[in-house]
């Protein structure tokens, strides 16, 4: 379990994506994926819902549905999660 106030990293997201939805053939999550669209990486809304659920459990936060809708790239989702964590720590 992660402490609130910790930082959510790209590696965390890579691991959770793999656990929750696997990886599309021909897609290497080890590549520079920060600004790729989730859709282009092969993740549809249900994959992101599952990913969001796992982030919420692991980091003990609650994400608004709009966070998943609005975060169309790994960079945007990581920033949104870290904003939550920072707000919680403050």
């Amino acid at each position: 379990m992660h402490m609130s106030g910790s930082v959510f990293t790209l590696d965390d997201l890579r691991r959770i994506l793999l656990e929750s939805a696997g990886a599309e053939e021909g897609t290497d999550l080890g590549d520079d994926i920060l600004d790729k669209k989730f859709g282009d990486l092969g993740y549809e809304s249900l994959a992101l819902l599952e990913t969001g659920g796992r982030i919420e459990r692991g980091w003990n936060i609650t994400l608004d549905d709009s966070v998943l809708d609005d975060s169309t790239t790994p960079r945007a989702l990581i920033e949104a999660v870290n904003a939550h964590l920072a707000a919680q720590a403050a």
């Binding site: 793999l18 656990e19 929750s20 939805a21 696997g22 990886a23 599309e24 053939e25």
Partner: peptide, 8 residues
């Protein structure tokens, strides 16, 4: 099967 299909 591709990895994408296994968790679902």
């Amino acid at each position: 099967l591709p990895g994408r299909l296994l968790p679902q």
